[in-house]
């Protein structure tokens, strides 16, 4: 309990970032719908909000079990990574290496690329590569692109490990 009380700010930060990341990941495939909807003058703010919130339910309807799990895991890991980085910066005055920031970003990027892999090609990657290149690429992957999400989890798991190790390591000068 003392640990929770002492670090409540970081825990809230981790939860907030995780929730935000998850919401973005779920809503990203329908960014055009949301852009047009929120720009629409004929729909009330409440109506726009209700559509946006109801689209979050696509985590159940538009994701396979594996892609839902990787998306949730990536969101949690990104939240933890950001909170740990803030902790390092504020408590230990440790200046983050560009490496740890870059690796976390790469992991998060992989997470975003894997979004909606399950939806028969409607992933960010296929949008990025075009319908032919994207879907063609998926046929060569045994898990039809969900590997990208797993890779994102591994990369973020690795950065989390590095950050925790740095935090728990005594402040010493290393022999190179």
């Amino acid at each position: 309990m003392t640990f929770v009380r002492r670090n409540i700010g970081y825990i809230i930060l981790a939860l907030a970032v995780s929730a935000l990341m998850l919401a973005v990941a779920i809503l990203l495939p329908n960014s055009t719908l949301l852009t047009l909807l929120w720009a629409s003058e004929g729909v009330s703010v409440l109506g726009k909000l209700s559509v946006t919130l109801s689209l979050l339910g696509s985590l159940v309807t538009n994701f396979s079990l594996l892609s839902a799990l990787t998306t949730v895991t990536i969101s949690i890991l990104v939240g933890i990574n950001i909170a740990l980085m803030f902790y390092l910066y504020r408590r230990q005055k440790y200046f983050l290496t560009r490496g740890s920031v870059a690796t976390t970003s790469v992991g998060a990027l992989f997470g975003m690329f894997s979004v909606g892999c399950a939806a028969c090609g409607s992933i960010i990657l296929t949008s990025f590569l075009g319908v032919v290149g994207g879907i063609g690429a998926l046929t060569y992957l045994p898990l039809r692109g969900q590997e990208i999400g797993i890779l994102g989890v591994l990369i973020l798991g690795y950065t989390t490990f590095l950050l925790v190790r740095t935090i728990t390591k005594p402040l010493t000068c290393d022999i190179l």
């Binding site: 329908n30 055009t32 109801s54 939806a119």
Partner: peptide
């Protein structure tokens, strides 16, 4: 006005779109 629906969105989302359009 046309709105794109990408993927298998839940019934509730489609219903909300319909209700907004009808209103």
């Amino acid at each position: 006005t046309k709105f794109p629906i990408n993927g298998a969105q839940p019934y509730e989302a489609v219903k909300q779109l319909i209700e907004n359009a009808l209103k």
